[in-house]
């Protein structure tokens, strides 16, 4: 394929010490309804370092979301280990904040209530939690919408609320599961830019699942390419593009174009055939 490829190992790109996320020999088997079993993920090994933005790219059904859910502690692995910050994952925790494609906002809470939720759970009083939540709402550009319910917002606004809700409790790691997959093209680009802006400020560790090649290249330090049936890591591709990145410049950059072309060739199914 291309010279930019590295073998599916988990070589650290930087000289930092212990990885923030260490995934070793991780497999997931689901029981099928007919009694058989389905190997969703097969011996995944991946290290993600602190402050690194890593995308997991692959076709539908390659288990990339399942992998993310296991790092989140929402789904139990069948075998193998995941360690976050050197400690094995035994369940969900506020060190890992998920952002889902479906937003998963609490419909019974207002924007303010949603964003303040994690702060209240962390033990803050109502007024302190709400003051902090208001700041975050302003930071994601939703000032004035505090008392709105999620159903009154557009998709892009809902996802901004979901991001603010997750940022509120200060996770070291963001686990983003196709967060912009349900948005129209224009909104998606805007939110990609906003996410990159937030990330360049905080430098949180991000694990970002997507099936959009351009999105993966635009955002990431490394792109993990997966194949399906069973879900395996096919390649880990470093994205050596300078930061801060500007979309207008990147689209003209031959290195960007090369990466997109190489990665598209690597995904088994052409992205346009994928169900939304």
């Amino acid at each position: 394929m291309s010279a930019t490829l590295t073998p599916p190992a988990s070589a650290a790109p930087s000289g930092s010490t212990a990885p923030m996320i260490a995934i070793a020999d991780l497999s997931k088997t689901f029981r099928r309804r007919d009694g058989g079993t389905h190997l969703a993920l097969d011996r995944i090994a991946l290290d993600v370092h602190e402050g690194e933005f890593v995308s997991i790219l692959g076709p539908s059904g390659c288990g990339k979301s399942t992998l993310l859910y296991m790092v989140g502690g929402f789904v139990e692995p069948s075998s193998g280990t995941i360690a976050v910050g050197g400690r094995p994952v035994t369940g969900p925790g506020p060190d890992r904040g998920p952002v889902f494609q479906e937003f998963a906002l609490f419909p019974w809470k207002t924007v303010l209530g949603n964003v303040a939720y994690g702060l209240r759970e962390a033990g803050l009083g109502r007024s302190a939690a709400e003051a902090q939540a208001r700041q975050l709402i302003e930071r994601v550009g939703l000032k004035g919408y505090e008392s709105f319910y999620p159903k009154e917002l557009s998709g892009g606004m809902k996802q901004r609320v979901a991001i603010a809700r997750t940022l509120a409790y200060g996770p070291a790691i963001l686990l983003m599961d196709e967060p912009f997959g349900a948005l129209d093209a224009h909104t998606r680009v805007r939110l990609q830019n906003e996410l990159l802006g937030l990330w360049e400020r905080d430098r949180k560790t991000v694990l970002f699942v997507t099936h959009a090649v351009d999105e993966a290249v635009f955002l990431s330090d490394r792109v993990v390419v997966m194949s399906r049936q069973p879900g395996r890591i096919k390649a880990i591709v470093p994205v050596d593009l300078p930061r801060p990145r500007r979309r207008e410049e990147l689209l003209l950059d031959p290195r960007y174009q090369r990466l997109v072309i190489d990665l598209e060739a690597m995904i088994e199914d052409p992205p346009e055939d994928l169900p939304a």
Partner: peptide, 29 residues
């Protein structure tokens, strides 16, 4: 109830037992 609602609360620090009345109850209203 959408599992991701429960997951969102769990990640925010809510215990598995507490999600019963903090998430499942209001979502079932």
């Amino acid at each position: 109830v959408e599992p991701k609602l429960v997951w969102s609360a769990r990640a925010a620090g809510t215990s598995a037992a507490a999600t019963l009345w903090k998430v499942v109850l209001p979502a079932t209203l």
